[in-house]
């Protein structure tokens, strides 16, 4: 089953909409709350990343009985050094974004921690694609 959501760059009030919607779906599918939490935390981080850094983005979710696959694509500045971005505490967020409580440099590491697999590809000046996969049955 597939779902897609649009993410608007710069609009923090809507960051988390995809995560909330996916959460509702997983609850209806009787997925273990612990797994739901991991998925939702990872997706929320991903959404906030798009809102904070990109111009716009899209979340594509594919669910079957075995796993959930989440693909977060954005049109944005891209990540020049992915290894660096994966380090805890590394952040390029502006002062304004930090003021709002985001930008602690936990985004990608937190996503990695809360997904079974994570794949990131990025093109500087074009955008980033993050793909997360998590098993749904333990």
């Amino acid at each position: 089953m597939e779902f897609s959501y649009e993410v608007e760059g710069g609009n923090f009030s809507k960051a988390g909409n995809a995560a909330s919607s996916v959460k509702k779906v997983l609850k209806q599918l009787n997925v273990d709350p612990k797994i739901i939490k991991r998925v939702v935390v990872a997706l929320y981080e991903g959404e906030v990343n798009v809102v904070a850094h990109a111009y716009k983005g899209k979340v594509l979710v594919d669910i079957d009985t075995a796993r959930i696959n989440i693909r977060i694509e954005d049109e944005g500045p891209g990540i020049p050094d992915i290894d660096l971005a994966m380090q805890v505490g590394y952040s390029t967020a502006s002062a304004m974004v930090r003021e709002m409580g985001f930008g602690a440099g936990m985004g990608l590491p937190n996503m990695k921690r809360n997904a079974d697999t994570i794949e990131i590809s990025s093109k500087v000046g074009a955008g980033t694609i993050v793909e997360l996969t998590t098993k749904l049955s333990s």
Partner: peptide, 22 residues
């Protein structure tokens, strides 16, 4: 916990039901 949101205990059936709902 006693979730009332679950469409079916069996995830495969729940998935089918959700597809029907959609």
């Amino acid at each position: 916990p006693r979730s009332m949101m679950v469409l079916d205990e069996d995830m495969g059936i729940a998935l089918k039901k959700m597809e029907r709902v959609r």
